[in-house]
């Protein structure tokens, strides 16, 4: 079962051994930003989740940051 890790501090994700990694926006709000306009924020979140789904459908051999 593949897992994608959405995390802001990518080196931590790499250290703990996540194989599919999607960098996030910020530590307290990885998939959003209170400074953005709500509609814009949701677009950003959707893009990140889409990237995560791409990661889950991609064949990898090693740790990969998407």
């Amino acid at each position: 079962m593949p897992v994608v890790h959405i995390a802001t501090v990518v080196p931590i994700s790499q250290t703990v051994g996540a194989n599919r990694i999607v960098p996030a926006i910020a530590i307290p709000h990885p998939l959003g930003d209170p400074k953005m306009d709500p509609a814009e924020e949701k677009v950003a979140r959707r893009e990140m989740v889409e990237k995560a789904l791409t990661a889950l459908t991609t064949d990898i051999e090693d740790q990969t940051v998407f």
Binding site: M1, P2, V3, V4, H5, I6, A7, T8, I12, S13, A18, A24, I27, P28, H29, P30, L31, V49, A52, L56
Partner: peptide
Amino acid sequence: SAAILTST
């Protein structure tokens, strides 16, 4: 089938 793990 797959999991999305989010971390702060």
